[in-house]
Amino acid sequence: MDTIDIDSEMAFSNLEHVRVVMVHTSHPGNIGAAARAMKTMGFRHLVLVQPRDFPSDTATAMASGATDLLDSATVVDSLEDAIADCALVVGASARSRTLPWPLVNPREMAQQVLSMPSGSQIALVLGRERSGLTNDELARCHCHVNIPANPDYSSLNVASAVQVLAYELRMSAQASDAKPKPHWGVPWDQPPATAGQLESLFQHWQQVLVDIDFLNPHNPRTLMSKVRRLILRAQPDEVEANILRGMLSQIDKHLRKP
């Protein structure tokens, strides 16, 4: 009879708040294969952003016993909806970007996930089969994860990518010496700001910059992308995000004084 490593199972329970988000998946077989990959590693939360064909018999066939994940999958209209309540968003990217962004490998990603405050919602975001995530979608992520592969043929099927990331998370959680430290070295006094709260902050920030003629909305260049990168890299908590919103509101108030 197989024995269960209680400590390992307790460690893995820390990953209950991780969801896999698949964006605009075109082939339903990839959804089913991803569900199977998730279930083998103990993950349950699948979110689909505008899948082309779902539900689907093909997805069910490829899930091979993981149909419960398909039945419970959440289908949403936008990436913003999929990650709104997440404190950490990691975007999978197979290629470098013009604007550098924090980049980790799967093992480093797993350690970052495990170091998040307890109960934080976390999203692993994967894009389209042919083109991956867009630059705008990747700009919504705190960091990007790249799976080291053969440089002469680095294209990885999206379900295979899910398997690699899920495996690294499970192995890190089950490692006998895995004692992740809090993200900033000490327990934090406030929960991290969610992606939805930060998105509201960015929209407010952009409007204020336009109002004070610091940002030309017709020629924005990379200004707001760099503001996003700065704030996402800092990972503010809810109170810090509210302080920034309060500052912006006060600027609004003064701009509107007669």
Rank of each mutant, 00 (worst) to 15 (best):
L215V: 04
G127N: 13
R233G: 13
V158F: 04
L103M: 10
L126T: 14
K257F: 11
D53Q: 09
L169S: 03
E199I: 13
N14V: 12
A110D: 03
L15G: 01
G65A: 00
R256E: 09
P51W: 01
P55A: 10
P28I: 03
R221T: 09
A35R: 07
T134V: 15
I231Q: 01
A161C: 13
A173I: 01
D53K: 07
V113F: 02
L79N: 03
I212L: 10
N150L: 07
A63F: 00
Q121N: 11
A195W: 00
V113G: 03
P220L: 08
S13H: 01
A84E: 14
M247N: 02
R97N: 05
P192Q: 09
V47D: 07
R44I: 00
S225Y: 12
W101K: 08
A161G: 11
A35F: 04
L124K: 15
S176Q: 14
V113A: 04
G29F: 09
N105T: 13
V76Q: 02
Q112E: 09
V125R: 15
R130I: 05
N219H: 14
R233M: 08
H183K: 14
V227S: 08
S131H: 13
T40L: 13
D5E: 08
G65I: 05
W188G: 15
S96H: 14
H27M: 12
Q174G: 06
R19W: 06
T222I: 11
M22P: 08
M38E: 01
V21Q: 04
V164H: 03
L198M: 11
N219P: 00
M38W: 05
V18W: 04
V104T: 10
R228T: 05
E80A: 15
A241S: 14
R128I: 08
Q203M: 12
H27L: 09
H24E: 09
P182W: 10
G42N: 06
P100H: 07
E80C: 11
N14R: 15
P51Y: 01
R221Q: 14
G65S: 04
K181A: 15
A175E: 07
P51N: 04
H144D: 03
D77A: 15
P191T: 12
E80W: 13
H17P: 03
R245G: 07
P51G: 07
T222Y: 13
V23N: 06
N216D: 12
S155A: 13
P182L: 08
R36P: 06
L126S: 14
A73G: 04
Q206V: 12
E9I: 02
M224R: 07
A178H: 02
V186L: 08
L255D: 00
G32I: 03
R19C: 10
A59E: 03
P187G: 11
N157P: 08
Q207Y: 11
I4C: 00
H27R: 13
V113K: 01
N14F: 09
A94L: 03
D213H: 09
H142N: 11
D177Q: 12
E199Q: 15
S118E: 14
D71Q: 11
G127F: 06
G246N: 11
A159D: 00
V49C: 05
M116G: 05
D81I: 07
E137Y: 10
A84W: 09
A149E: 00
P51S: 02
V75Y: 02
V89M: 06
V104H: 08
P106T: 02
L138N: 10
P106S: 04
Q111A: 13
A234W: 01
S131C: 08
N157Q: 10
C86N: 06
E108F: 03
V227M: 10
